[in-house]
Design a protein around this nucleic acid. Structure first.
Lengths: 342, 342
DNA sequence: CTGAAAGCGCTTACAG
DNA sequence: CTGAAAGCGCTTACAG
């Protein structure tokens, strides 16, 4: 022990529970209880321990607690992107739902890659997480196997799962894609194109919805679908809009699979003096902040992403605590925002 | 032991190193070495252990490792916002710099609040992080004290620190604010306003730079400063632009403390038929993707945020590994992007 | 309400 | 190149 009352050697050099107990004149386990289950110790004891904690600047060692209790209080969150505003809102929702409790978030960026997801999960499983929040439903076989073996509960976010027993929070990407397209049909557009990028599962489901709606209306034409695997950006949206108009001059409306692409499409038209929606209608998906402000304002689907994160984390917390959730599949819906562009 | 070779009881139910060692016919510590320092064991041993690991689906227990080695391999990251594109880029840089190693990120959102930062740090310190990445330089006294007591190395990001010995990666917010303003002066604007929101330390430093430049040019007028504490949004930018033009009709240029506000200002003008830059010039800060696409395209300061995250994490990693960094204060600079709006 | 003992699953010097 | 022992800092039943 040196002057600060801290032992030397292998450890972290931080004050330990043992020192707290010593200073408070109680046993280690009474000190432990005074901190984690204060109602189980006497008032006097609690105060003595609290004073010792303050005096020593004691900070509990989470690794020791996790090891002894086999409860890590860690929740793993896997998102496909940090730069996509959709997922940052999801993260915010999760963060807020979890904050009151004592859970820590281990956030990983999969970059829309199943291989990356696998790598991250392999690492994060070492932390014995109490639960996992996925932004996707489709996993590689290796991930499925790890999940099965680890027995860690997980919730998938954004889309709804059809697997029995699976926990999911989101809304039907398919229905949303269909509703947006039906809106265009109802407005009288007949040559409705679809612009998609990234081609992750959500985009693909939206495209399915688009297809179902144009088939339903007898307006299907595969040549009106423009799908590329590159990440969605404003620049790409502008470029694809140019391509669409060049290749399909009779195209009278474009459904972009997200607002980033749609913004690019709108800017492209602004710069080329193409009037929206008179010459061509444009709509997007997600309702990002700029959408209601740009000119023309963008018709799009408002998605409850913050809520998705919040509710998914809440659901996971319930399951972790051993409660049976009322619903395993929580549909938060979506809303069509009709504005000037379509 | 049950059929899967896993012991029952208090633990996590996962396979342990002991079981791996048993199956491989070596001691626990040889198994440990085979995994963490493979070059220190014989080829035969290594293979046997690896086979046992695969067979049992062994996943190391990080809590146990952290406790035994007093090395958590955890890095704490504190950002003021998840929704601000600036910080998501920083996060991406950090994520990428750290990925190769074995470090895990504990990411917390301070919501621009020192009190929240304090709460988060108190919790995260329990994980005995090897290092901390801050997005701010100003800390509450309590945070300063915790940092001091914990002895955990930290790097502050975005701005440059003047404290001797402090580690920082970023660029001078002051210089950047000054350069942007000087640009407006050079372009001939004489009634240059400043619109600021959130009023975090970076914004305040940019405002200082603005002030220094208008004073330098003999153009200072406090009435041209419009500063509000609300979070920066497009909506707020539009509103503040309206206020500025109403209250200061002779204002001929506006420097918005970030691109979000500037976008709002541009949209406001578009909607009201106000010509930029003829009637009023607008510029922003950060160069978000939309800035080069909107009409008119936005003059702004391009900031190296991804690089800041990447370099800050790299610097921290160096210090954690006990290497003396070449530079403790890494200036990544910034670049003025002159476009149509100013 | 309080305590002695065992144990969580690893790693670390120290020997051989 | 390999192993027996101690220890990291907590919590968990079990007693009293």
């Amino acid at each position: 022990m040196d002057k600060t009352g801290r032992s030397k050697g292998r450890g972290t050099g931080r004050a330990t529970l043992e020192q707290v107990a010593g200073m408070a004149g109680v046993s280690i386990m009474t000190a432990s209880r005074a901190l984690s289950q204060p109602q189980m110790v006497s008032e006097v004891t609690r105060v003595k321990v609290e004073q010792a904690v303050a005096e020593l600047g004691y900070v509990p060692n989470r690794a020791a607690r996790a090891l002894a209790s086999s409860q890590s209080h860690v929740i793993v969150v896997l998102v496909p992107s940090f730069s996509n505003a959709v997922f940052t809102a999801v993260l915010e929702g999760i963060h807020d739902a979890v904050a009151p409790g004592q859970y820590q978030l281990l956030i990983g960026n999969t970059y829309y890659s199943q291989a990356e997801e696998e790598k991250l999960l392999r690492t994060y499983l070492q932390s014995s997480p109490d639960g996992i929040l996925f932004s996707s439903q489709a996993h590689s076989p290796a991930v499925a196997k790890m999940l099965e073996a680890s027995q860690v509960p997980s919730v998938s976010m954004m889309d709804l799962s059809d697997e029995p027993g699976a926990l999911s929070v989101g809304f039907s990407q398919f229905e949303a894609g269909m509703e947006m397209t039906r809106h265009l049909v109802k407005k009288g557009y007949r040559r409705i194109g679809f612009i998609g990028a990234q081609l992750d599962e959500r985009t693909l489901r939206r495209a399915d919805g688009y297809r179902a709606a144009v088939v339903e209306a007898g307006l299907a034409d595969p040549r009106l679908e423009l799908m590329v695997p590159e990440p969605s950006t404003i620049a790409l949206g502008a470029e694809l809009m140019g391509q669409m108009m060049a290749n399909m001059p009779d195209c009278d409306a474009v459904f972009c699979c997200n607002d980033d692409l749609a913004h690019g499409a709108v800017y492209h038209c602004q710069r080329h003096g193409i009037r929206i929606p008179q010459e061509i209608a444009v709509c997007g998906f997600n309702d990002l902040p700029a959408s209601r402000w740009m000119m023309p304002s963008l018709t799009t689907i408002d998605t409850p992403r913050y809520q998705v994160g919040f509710e998914a984390a809440s659901l996971l917390l319930q399951v972790i605590k051993g409660q049976e959730p009322e619903r395993k599949r929580i549909d938060l819906g979506f809303a069509l925002r009709e504005r000037e562009s379509a």
